Amino acid sequence: MYEPIRTKSVHTMAGTTTPDFPHRSREEELDIQLAGHLAALLAVTDELRALAPSADLDAAASRLAEQVARLRGGRPPARSSVAAAIHEPHTLALHQRAHALAGRALVVAASRADTAAAILAAQRMDAHAAAQAERREPVAAG
């Protein structure tokens, strides 16, 4: 019923069977993506730690650094010690950004079936959602 394909695919390189550049597997690509999301979350966490130090943020930063190093083959992530000006709207924005980054990390971790990273990302989402709820002022009934 179907006619066999007689020509090479347009997606193969002309005249070669081995590509001139290395290819990464899907798992390697997901590792790179997850490490990037967790490293970005670590940077925001470090900034939050500088603005409002807490034991929870210290522990989270340590766990995030461990996960990034694991995903990058043992190479530790770059860390920043620079802090911006301290004020509430900035802190709220950082918590919002951290929540979004943790959500992205959770999606990728679930996609690659990385339980440790998924649990960490979910915990960070919960922590940043709670921090956002604390920072928002209640609306006065009137």
Rank of each mutant, 00 (worst) to 15 (best):
S81G: 15
L48C: 02
G73I: 07
I32T: 15
R26V: 10
H95A: 08
S80N: 13
Y2V: 01
Q123N: 12
E29D: 06
T45H: 07
M125L: 12
A50Q: 08
H11D: 14
A113R: 10
S111E: 11
S80A: 12
G74S: 10
P77Q: 05
V139S: 13
A55P: 02
V108G: 00
T16A: 15
V68Y: 08
A69S: 13
Y2W: 02
A129K: 13
A55N: 02
R135G: 05
V44W: 03
H95I: 08
G142Y: 10
P53T: 03
D114R: 02
A121C: 00
L92R: 15
M1P: 01
F21L: 12
H11W: 14
P22D: 00
H23T: 10
A118M: 01
S80I: 01
A65V: 03
A127F: 14
A130G: 09
L51F: 06
H87R: 14
H23W: 00
V139I: 12
A105Q: 02
E28P: 03
P22G: 00
R49G: 12
T18P: 04
P19Q: 13
Q67I: 04
D31E: 12
R72C: 09
A84H: 08
P89Y: 05
V10W: 13
G103V: 00
D58I: 01
D114S: 00
H87S: 14
T115R: 07
L34I: 02
H99F: 15
G74A: 10
A131T: 07
T91Q: 15
A85M: 05
E134P: 07
M125I: 13
A133E: 05
R75H: 15
R136A: 10
A117D: 04
S111P: 00
A83M: 11
G15R: 14
T45N: 09
D31S: 11
A118V: 01
V68M: 09
